[in-house]
Structures are given as structure tokens and as C-alpha cells.
């Protein structure tokens, strides 16, 4: 069985070093601007930090994958071009791209640099994936979290590139790369500004009874009772009143995290070349625990042993986990 690459998140240089030290084969990260889909305040890398991060990872046999995975709008392409060029200059091992213009520029300007297709491109069919491979030389596709293991296996047979699947973390999929809910409420786009629920527009109002109302802009998007588990303040994870429903309910998605730990052997047998852990917005403590747990589990599967899986539920959103579509098409 081929050894899959464990691809781990890093929102800060310290998290990158933590991931590498915890056993990551590759770390993905981005710059402090709209070119990456985790453009959160206080997060991400300056050019100098990226260069140092690449050196740290390479010295320890790990790769760095640069996420340039948002969509430039007219008149702003220079920022994405600079990010691609800086990645090439610093010696990153691959660029993770979603936009065809960014992919075309990278393929033309840096033909020797690997291109990975971001989950933000939402390419889930063999036809879509083959298009990116043919036109831009994409070497790996990060699959959207909408396929069963059996479907992943079928896709793998029909595409000439590697497959990377998410195995742990945030599970706010919607139609990945096409979420416009945040844009509708805040005027900022997840896909084009890299910011989902901009923190400047998130407010928590604690009530006297211990409940907390979550507001995004002018909208109340959820209300947690005292002691009730909470989730991220995103519209897709909010609870709403709707006709025909007595109580507010999760109309789009639930606050829950993906955890495919028990499916690792099947995913490896299906030919998945890389496993991705979500969470660039999370702490070093999260990175250390989750990367360490999956490093051990993957190595045990490779050794023919049953993996001993650490309990990661305390780190999950809403303290709940799911196998999502990988386990069943009825994940909601």
C-alpha cells in the first residue's frame, strides 16, 4: 500500500513548526492577504515568514504547499500573481489554486512548480478534473467533501492525477467555492476576499440567562442556550426560523466536524494519495494533537495494524463529529 501524504494546516509560523514536528508530510499555508481562503485577522505568513517556514520544513523532510486558493476579481490580479511568484521564489513544493486564471498564470510562469487544485474549485467529476489536468497540468485534486469512499474510488480510476481528501476538521461544505451567503450579509466574499464571517462583523451578546446570541452584521444567526455547545459564527451553521417549523433549526449545515479516522484503510485502498487536515485558523495545540493522532493512525494502517485512534471530539465544532458524505449520502 502506497504511503499517503499527511497534509496539515498552519496559520502561523509556530503552527508550521508544530505540524512538521508532529509528523506532517506536508504543511499548507498562505499569505496575509485575500489570495488565500483563510484570510483571517492576525493569521498567516509574511513573505519572510514563508521563506523561513519553507526552509524549516525542507530541513526536516516536509513539504510546504502554498494556498493561493481564492478568486481574483478584475483589477486585482497583481496580488495573486505576486503570491504565485513569491511561492516559486521561496521554493514551495506546490501551489494550491482554485481560479483558472491563477492556474493559467502559474502553469505558464512556473511550469516546473506542481499545481494542486483546491477544494474551492469544487471539481468532483472526472470530466472537471481532467479539464484542469489537461489545461494547466494540475497534479493533484483536493476533492470536495461530497463523495462516498466508493465514489472516490471510481473517480480515481478515471483521472490522471493524485487525489487528496479531507479527513478531519470543519465541515461547512455547501457547494464548496461557491458560497455567497457571507457576501450577502457582510459585503465581503469568502471566495474573493478569503474571509468567511469577517470577525469585525461578528458579535456575541451574552444574556442574563447565560444564553449567547451570535450576530453577523445586522443578522442574528444563532442563539445558544446556557451550557449548549457552540459552533462557528457562519451563516451556513446558523439556526433560523422558517415557515412550517416550530423552532429555529439548522437550515443549511450543522456545527459539526468531519472525522474519517475509521475510514483511513478504505480511503487508502481506494487510492487516495494525500489526507488533509482542516484548521489553519486553529491553535498549535489543535495542530499538535490532531496531526499527532493521524500520524500514528496512518502509520499503523501502513504497518497492517488496527489504528488506535485518539479521541479528538473535544476539538470538534459543536463537540460533534461525522463521517459526512464519505460515510453516507445522508449526512444531513
Amino acid at each position: 500500500m502506497k504511503r499517503p501524504e499527511l497534509v496539515c494546516p498552519a496559520g502561523t509560523p509556530a503552527a508550521l513548526r508544530t505540524a512538521v514536528d508532529a509528523g506532517a508530510d506536508a504543511v499548507y499555508c498562505g499569505f496575509q492577504n485575500a489570495t488565500n481562503a483563510r484570510n483571517f485577522p492576525g493569521l498567516n505568513f509574511t513573505p519572510a515568514e514563508m521563506e523561513q517556514g519553507v526552509a524549516y520544513a525542507h530541513a526536516r523532510g516536509a513539504k510546504v504547499l502554498l494556498a493561493v486558493n481564492s478568486f481574483p476579481t478584475a483589477g486585482r490580479f497583481d496580488l495573486w500573481r505576486e503570491a504565485v511568484d513569491a511561492g516559486a521564489r521561496f521554493g514551495v513544493d506546490a501551489l494550491i489554486v482554485a481560479d483558472i486564471g491563477v492556474a493559467a498564470y502559474a502553469a505558464e510562469a512556473h511550469p516546473d512548480l506542481r499545481l494542486h487544485l483546491s477544494v474551492q474549485a469544487a471539481a468532483s467529476s472526472p470530466e472537471a478534473i481532467r479539464y484542469y489536468v489537461r489545461e494547466f497540468g494540475v497534479r493533484r485534486v483536493v476533492l470536495p467533501r461530497i463523495l462516498t469512499v466508493s465514489e472516490i474510488k471510481d473517480v480515481k480510476k478515471e483521472i490522471p492525477c493524485e487525489i487528496e481528501t479531507f479527513i478531519f476538521g470543519n465541515h461547512g461544505l455547501m457547494v464548496e467555492g461557491r458560497c455567497s451567503l457571507t457576501n450577502y450579509v457582510t459585503g465581503l466574499s469568502t471566495n474573493m476576499d478569503g474571509v468567511c464571517s469577517p470577525a469585525a462583523q461578528v458579535h456575541y451578546d451574552k444574556e442574563a440567562d447565560g444564553s449567547v446570541a451570535t450576530r453577523l452584521g445586522d443578522f442574528t444567526i444563532d442563539r445558544f442556550g446556557a451550557g449548549e455547545q457552540a459552533g462557528y459564527p457562519t451563516i451556513c451553521k446558523g439556526r433560523y426560523h422558517a415557515a412550517g417549523r416550530e423552532d429555529a433549526y439548522y437550515a443549511f449545515e450543522e456545527p459539526i466536524s468531519l472525522n474519517l479516522a475509521t475510514l483511513l484503510p478504505q480511503l487508502m485502498a481506494a487510492g487516495v494519495e494525500a489526507f488533509k487536515i482542516e484548521g489553519r485558523q486553529r491553535s498549535r495545540a489543535y495542530v499538535r494533537q490532531v496531526v499527532g493522532a493521524f500520524r500514528g493512525a496512518v502509520d499503523q494502517v501502513l504497518a497492517g495494524e488496527d489504528p488506535e485512534l485518539a479521541d479528538l471530539v473535544a476539538l470538534t465544532e459543536g463537540q460533534k463529529q461525522t463521517q459526512g458524505a464519505a460515510g453516507s449520502k445522508k449526512w444531513r
Partner: peptide, 29 residues
């Protein structure tokens, strides 16, 4: 992990959320 403490309601945040997120990320680095 700050997010995990928030999910479990062991951490309460009010006021300027962006400032708190920045502080959290700065301290974590």
C-alpha cells in the same frame, strides 16, 4: 485550543471579536 474552549462554552467572548481573534492568533504564534 481557543476554538475548542469556545465550542464547549468554557470561553466567553464579547465586544470586538476581531481584536480577540488577533490577540489569540498573536499569542498562539
Amino acid at each position: 485550543d481557543g476554538d475548542a474552549l469556545f465550542f464547549s462554552r468554557d470561553l466567553d467572548i464579547t465586544g470586538n471579536t476581531e481584536a480577540v481573534v488577533c490577540l489569540r492568533n498573536a499569542l498562539d504564534d
